[in-house]
Design a protein around this nucleic acid. Structure first.
Lengths: 255, 255
DNA sequence: AAATATCCTGCAAAGAATTGCATAATTTTT
DNA sequence: AAAAATTATGCAATTCTTTGCAGGATATTT
């Protein structure tokens, strides 16, 4: 994540970087940013003031904090692990204005829902009630929850109704979590009904992105969802040029 | 859950940590916090003073206490919750083994979902993702979430998809919240799309029960959902023989 | 009432923020 | 394309905050 070397970094770029850091770690220090962005602390402070005026961060002595830090929900809130946030952040960068997106469930997906910038206008279909609720906090998104029977464990909607309803939609990009990812076996999962829904989701999407923390690479579950060739993107917390990734990069865009 | 290792902890972070501890244990000791947060007790005391000035905690000799037991506002909140629990409990008593039930959204409905006894085996349809998630914690229930577009405010699914899907189901009993209840005007609500969904829910149900805290009696909203004659039950926190209820008891079973 | 623990006040050092100003970069106008 | 206007950046001097500590005051316990 070397934003340096680029001698001219525009103010807006720095702002974007700062926001990203805050989303990732919930806080930033002026001193750190000064080093990372190679500008004086004065400039950083001015940046932080700008962002605070825009209401995007909470400026405090020494740096700034995520706004959600102060929200009433904060108290019981358990923040996602940084690696999940990283995955979520990378995923969001694939979404562009006006897109129609379909998402599965899981904590990484919930984290993604939280991190979507306020300016983005898009349509989100989801099979997860939890993701739907999180997305519904967003000011500009249209959120459509696919109905169906609730799975006890995965907290997503399943069953024939969900599958047939998915046949009626056509989306630009589908984000899917995965329990198993393997070079030969592709994407695998352990629950029959969940697999059916994931398959239907993939059929409805022009492009599919798998989001997963790197721990799940090289693991295989009982049932196959799809092979790697069905995928467009593989998003994990790894660096795209990580050696663990090279074999995969022949089949999918690794991010 | 140690916040250390992070060499610089900002003041606001400490405050957040302290609040979290107080919510967890109802009290904190300055000496403990000094160790946990790796700052001098003086700093802790200053933090506690800050938080006390902001009215968030109650500072006492040796540390601080949760304020929640002393604030009249909190008491009201708890009281309001109690009356909702009462309504929810009465509603549950209408559900019998094997029934197929349909529910709307709202805090009372969520409360009901929590209180359903573990032994009950039944099928629940709901238009509320929140209620669905709560119901899915139950060991024996089958939960089906009706899909649709998420309403920003009411947190229920709305739109034509929801309405047409509701046409396909037939349930024994439908539980509905209400914003307005009035002898002449019947059940009323303020949002067009919400009203459409509620009407569809009523059409799908053999019997309809309105759940509402008594404050909402004698209030009228802009749009009509149905008249009292369409209802089977009216459930509130009032006693069935309360004088406020007598007029209603000619049209519906008051509980 | 003596011993102990906790609190408060003022102080000094370190770090952070602000201000004004000079300089450089960028955009707009000519 | 040059000139002018605007905006962004870094620096130095000043001011403000935060923090830990010392010593005295105030509680709390025994």
């Amino acid at each position: 994540m070397e934003e340096q070397g680029n001698l001219t970094m525009l103010k807006k770029e720095r702002h974007a970087f700062i926001i990203k850091q805050i989303n990732l770690h919930n806080k930033v220090l002026s001193s750190d940013l000064s080093v990372q962005l190679q500008v004086s602390e004065d400039t950083i402070r001015r940046d932080l003031n700008n962002l605070a005026e825009e209401g995007k961060i909470l400026k405090v002595h020494g740096g700034a904090l995520s706004k959600s830090f102060h929200s009433p929900y904060q108290l019981n809130e358990i923040y996602a692990k940084d690696s999940k946030k990283e995955v979520a952040q990378k995923a969001i960068e694939l979404i562009s204005e006006g897109m129609v997106v379909l998402t599965g469930g899981g904590t990484t997906m919930v984290e993604m829902a939280r991190l979507i910038p306020d300016e983005l206008e898009a349509t989100f279909f989801t099979v997860s009630p939890l993701v739907a609720l999180e997305l519904s906090e967003h000011p500009k998104l249209t959120v459509i929850l696919m109905g169906g029977q609730l799975s006890k464990n995965a907290h997503i909607n399943i069953g024939s109704k969900t599958v047939t309803d998915l046949m009626d939609i056509k989306v630009d990009l589908c984000f899917l979590g995965a329990n198993g990812i393997d070079l030969k076996e592709g994407i695998t999962d352990s629950d029959y009904e969940v697999v059916q829904v994931k398959k239907a989701m993939i059929r409805s999407a022009a492009k599919v992105a798998i989001m997963s923390i790197s721990e799940k690479l090289e693991s295989v579950q009982k049932m196959k969802v799809c092979s790697l060739s069905n995928l467009e993107y593989l998003i994990s917390d790894l660096n795209p040029d990580d050696p663990k990734y090279t074999a995969y990069s022949e089949f999918v865009k690794v991010i």
